[in-house]
């Protein structure tokens, strides 16, 4: 709101609390919420890197080798290390919220939240182990 409110003869201004831009830095729980929302940048950022790798794959062996060289640069390693922390944070917060989005019932009993979240975590670990094993086997 302006420091010098103007007189409005016809239309009263309704009250609206003004929020500072960085309101979410004041409390850890709010900052954590914004951090969770920002994981989406790293999710999409990695999807883009992955797409560029597939593009290099389609362009031929030389282009692909050049792309792999790029991935070995210290800048790329650092960015991937930071991104890994954020995408893992995305997974953890996502699975913990899954019971809220998906209320499963067996008979007339609701499946407990911990079971739904637990199954998500098990699927995550299983998929990760399977993909790592498949890569190891070449």
């Amino acid at each position: 709101m302006s420091a010098n409110p103007q007189h409005t003869p016809y239309h009263p201004r309704w009250y609206r609390a003004s929020m500072p831009i960085f309101w979410w830095l004041r409390r850890w729980i709010h900052a954590r919420f914004i951090l969770r929302e920002l994981t989406s940048i790293f999710v999409a950022g990695y999807a883009l890197v992955y797409l560029l790798q597939l593009r290099a794959l389609g362009l031929g062996p030389e282009a692909y080798a050049r792309f792999l060289d790029l991935l070995r640069s210290p800048l790329s390693i650092s960015l991937h290390a930071v991104s890994l922390v954020f995408v893992i944070y995305h997974s953890i917060t996502w699975f913990n919220l899954a019971p809220r989005a998906l209320a499963l019932r067996i008979g007339d009993r609701r499946v407990p939240d911990k079971v739904i979240a637990g199954l998500n975590f098990i699927a995550w670990i299983g998929i990760s182990a399977a993909l790592a094993w498949a890569t190891l086997k070449g």
Binding site: V87, S91, N120, A123, W124, S128, L131
Partner: peptide, 8 residues
């Protein structure tokens, strides 16, 4: 993304 991106 939660299931596949971290390991990829």
């Amino acid at each position: 993304a939660a299931l596949f991106i971290p390991i990829t």
